[in-house]
């Protein structure tokens, strides 16, 4: 459905997106995840034809975002971050205007507005549709923005940080809504919050510093990210170096680091990909007569990975 190849974008001389490529299938919910300034919004702006890339190509349903932008704009619904709206308009008036811009005839327009308003819970305080947009709360503005994207029943929905600034109840509603939209539409959303995209999205694209650092389903990523398994052991009863060496000689152990933890020595034991070294380490400890305080296996979480990515970028800057 969406094909991006070697996309690069410079703002003047700042590189915002650096040679990224990915593919998105029709009918999936895809999350763009990355720290501030990673280039998420920039990528989404290019996909929605707001601005052209410096180089590379992007197509949606076979249409090129640079050369056939009007076709693409007709079938994509885009909610920019911060949801810009005309403050002086009324909700219904705004949605009617947007529907007209999308080329709908007046009867169809009314229907489309009612349908979208209902989907986005804009019907509830009864006068909601008649309120001025600058008097709405953040959450309701967000809903108006989302309703606007849904007016023309787009094939592709692009939502830039759809849940930012919402209270927990609204976040949950928004997630449910996005999940239900994912059944009929292809949805691309961006976020800083791993937990959110992990729940919502069938596919994650993690970007940092303008580059894709990992992509795949949450499960794939978790496997990819955790890498070789680690066992953490805390023991005493010998010299730190000696104990480390003894553990390092165990079959299947690739590397051992030691550090102090009070009176105890902490060993971080690296094994092969799916190995579980707990049993072997325990046997060794028993054989040597060391005292054991802790023995656990650690699987790197996606969260760790993500934080690490973010951290690396901050230290690089």
């Amino acid at each position: 459905m969406i094909d991006v190849k070697h996309l690069t974008k410079y703002y003047g001389r700042t590189l915002a997106v650096d040679d990224i490529s990915f593919h998105i299938d029709a009918g999936s919910v895809v999350g763009f995840l990355g720290p501030n300034g990673a280039g998420k919004s920039t990528t989404l702006r290019i996909l929605t034809c707001f601005m052209p890339a410096t180089s590379g190509s992007a197509t949606i349903a076979g249409y090129d975002v640079f050369k056939q932008s009007l076709q693409i704009r007709g079938m994509v619904g885009y909610m920019p971050e911060n949801v810009p709206l005309y403050p002086e308009m009324r909700v219904r008036e705004y949605l009617m205007f947007r529907a007209a811009l999308r080329g709908m005839k007046s009867k169809q327009r009314s229907l489309a507005v009612d349908r979208a308003a209902e989907k986005c819970w804009l019907v509830k305080p009864e006068d909601m549709m008649r309120r001025r947009i600058d008097q709405l709360s953040r959450g309701y503005r967000q809903r108006v923005g989302l309703a606007d994207c849904l007016l023309h029943d787009p094939k592709v929905l692009v939502l830039d940080e759809p849940t930012i600034g919402l209270d927990p109840a609204q976040v949950r509603e928004m997630r449910n809504l996005i999940r239900s939209l994912g059944e009929e539409h292809t949805v691309i959303l961006s976020s800083h919050i791993l937990a959110e995209v992990e729940q919502l999205c069938g596919k994650l694209i993690i970007i940092s510093g303008g580059k894709i650092v990992a992509q795949g389903t949450p499960d794939e990523l978790r496997r990819q990210v955790s890498g070789p398994s680690r066992v953490i052991v805390e023991l005493r009863g010998g010299q730190a170096e000696q104990m480390a060496k003894a553990v390092a000689d165990v079959d299947g152990v690739r590397d051992v680091q030691h550090s102090r933890a009070g009176n105890w020595t902490r060993l971080t034991v690296q094994g092969a990909e799916d190995a579980d070294l707990r049993q072997d380490v325990a046997d060794l400890v028993a054989a040597k007569g060391y005292h054991l305080r802790e023995l656990r296996r650690e699987i790197g979480s996606l969260e760790d990975f993500f934080v690490q990515m973010t951290y690396e970028q901050i230290t690089r800057d």
Binding site: R73, Y78, P80, P87, R98
Partner: peptide, 14 residues
């Protein structure tokens, strides 16, 4: 200034 240019220019208008 308000960013509405983004919604405007991503609608199918030239």
């Amino acid at each position: 200034r308000s960013g509405t240019i983004e919604t405007l220019m991503t609608a199918p208008v030239t």
